[in-house]
Design a protein around this nucleic acid. Sequence first.
RNA 1: UCCCCGGUAGCUCAACGGCAGAGCGGGUGGCUGUUAACCACUAGGUUGAUGGUUCGAGUCCGUCCCGGGGAGCCA
Length: 516
Amino acid sequence: MEPINLRCFFYVTHCFHRITHFANECWCMQDKRLIKNSGEVIIYSIAGDPADMEKGIRISELFGKEDEYTGKTVRVQGWVRTRRDSKAGVSFIELNDGSSLKGLQVVAALDRPEYREVLEKITTGSAVLVEGILSPSPGKGQAVEIQADRIELYGWADPAVYPLQKKRHSFEFLRQIAHLRPRTNTIGAVARVRNRLGFAIHRFFQERGFNYLNTPIITASDCEGAGETFRVTTLDPLRTVHGENPYGEDFFSRPAYLTVSGQLQAEIFALALGRVYTFGPTFRAENSNTSRHLAEFWMVEPEMAFYDLQDDLDLAMEFIKHLVKVVLEECAEDLDFFTRFVEPELRGRLETVVSRPFEVITYTEAVELLKKSGEQFAFPVDWGSDLQAEHERYLTEKVFNKPVGIIDFPRSLKPFYMRVNEDGKTVAAMDILVPGTGEIIGGSQREERLDKLLEQMELKGISVEDYRWYVELREFGSAPHSGFGLGFERLVQFVTGLPNIREVIPFPRTPGHAEF
RNA sequence: UCCCCGGUAGCUCAACGGCAGAGCGGGUGGCUGUUAACCACUAGGUUGAUGGUUCGAGUCCGUCCCGGGGAGCCA
C-alpha cells in the first residue's frame, strides 16, 4: 500500500462522520479512490485501507452476539436487498453483506436531515454503509434491527436496469449474470458452503498427518484414459508448422496438456512422504453437456502408502461423513435454506449419511442384485459391462437409500494402474455413490508389483517408455499404496441439493462457455 | 456427440391458424412498523434467425442459432 498523507489520515480517522465534506480534496490526492457519481451523491471506496478507517462489523458477527451489541452503536457495510417504505415515518432496508444468509433490517427515519438526500438513492443492489444503534425489533421476522443515524452510499444501482429483483430468478438467467449472481440467496449460500468445505478438507487431512501436495497443472502425459485433454501450446494455430518435429517450436518442445488428474504424481510423493493429498483444478475436454460435468473442476486426491483397498475405502467413508457433519454443524442456516427452497429431503439425507454406515458391496454382488430386482432398465445388466447411471441410481436411491461403495470391478473396465485381485479378473477399485448426485468418489489400490503392472500396461496399450518414471517407482522400494479422487463440485452439489453443477462453481466452464 | 423439450415485455410465463396478454420488476400517485408489503394509474414487444405453406403464422413445415433435461464419457 502506498504511504498515505498524514493530514488525510487525520481526517479519515477523526472526522469520519464528515468525510463526504473533506473527501473531495483529501481523497483525490491519494489515488482514484474517490469518484463522483453522476448525481449529487459522493461515493467513495474504502477498499485497501484497513488502517485508515475503522471497519464496520460483519452482520453474522452481530447475529452471533446479539446481547453483546444490542444498545450499542454499530457500523455495517453491505448491499441493499429490499427496501420497504413507510412514508409516514420510516423506511425499512434489508442489508446483506454476504456473511450470512439473513440480512440486517435497517430502520431509517425519512425526515433525518443527515441522510435524507442519500436515502433517495437507496435502491435494491446499492452498496451502503449504515451506522446506528442495534435495537430489539418490534416487528416479526427479526430479533434485532439497526436504527440508522448515518447512511452513506458507496455505489448506486439503477433500479430500472439492475437485473436482480426481489423475487426468484431461474438459474439459467442467473448464469448469464455470473458477476451479480453471488448476491442472490442461493448462490451466496453455495459460496459460503463451498468455502467451509474447502477449509474442512484441508483440516481433515492435516489433522491426520497428510501433506498438502501441489501437482502440476501442465503435464506431458495424456494419461490413464481419464478423458479428452486440453492441449497447451504457444504455437499460432493459423501458422503452418515447418520441419520434421511439429512440436519443435512449441514451448515445451513436445505435446503438453492440462492435467486430468494429479494422481500419478501424487503416487510419487506418497511413496516418499507416506500420506499426501492434492486439491486443485482439473480439466477435461469432453463434450459433456450434463448437470454433473464441467470442463474445469476441482478435485481432491489423497494418496497413501501402506494402505490397501479396505484402508482406502475406510478413509473415503470417514472423509465424506466428516465433511457432511461439518456442513450440518457449521452451515446450518444455509442448509436450512437449501432444504426449504431447493431439496426438501436434503437435511434428512445428510443426517442419514452421518448416522448410518455406508453400504459396501462388490461389483459382482451389485450385478446380481440388479438382475434379481425385476426392475426394467433401459440398459441390460451384465457382468463385465459398466454400471449405467440408472443402475447406480437404483442401488443408492431405491435399494439402500444411502451412500453405497462398490468394489472389485472387472479388470477390463478400469485403468492400468489399479491392482489386480487374486482372481485375475477383477481389480481393487472402489466407487462411492450417493443419492441424487451419483458417483462422488472413485479410487483404488494401485498396482505395486512390477510384473503385474507391466502386464497391465501391455494389456491396455500403455507405453512403458512414456511412463518410465512410473514403472521405476515399482523397481525402487515399491510399496502397497492406495488413493482416491473426490469431485469437489459433486460434493458441493450433494450437500446443497442443487440439481445442476453449474450453480456450485463460481464460474462454470462447459462446452461453448468460458465467459467471465 | 445422440435423444427429448423449449426460445413471446427487464424477469417468470399465458395466448384453438384470426386484435400479442398476465403476474412480478420499472415510473407516478396513495397507504401502511414494513417482511417477496399493499392499492391505483402508467410505460414497456421486429414473438431467437431465416426460408416456406396460408386470405391470414407467436402458433404449421424446412434449415440454422441458443437454452434446458436425459444418455454416453467421468469426478
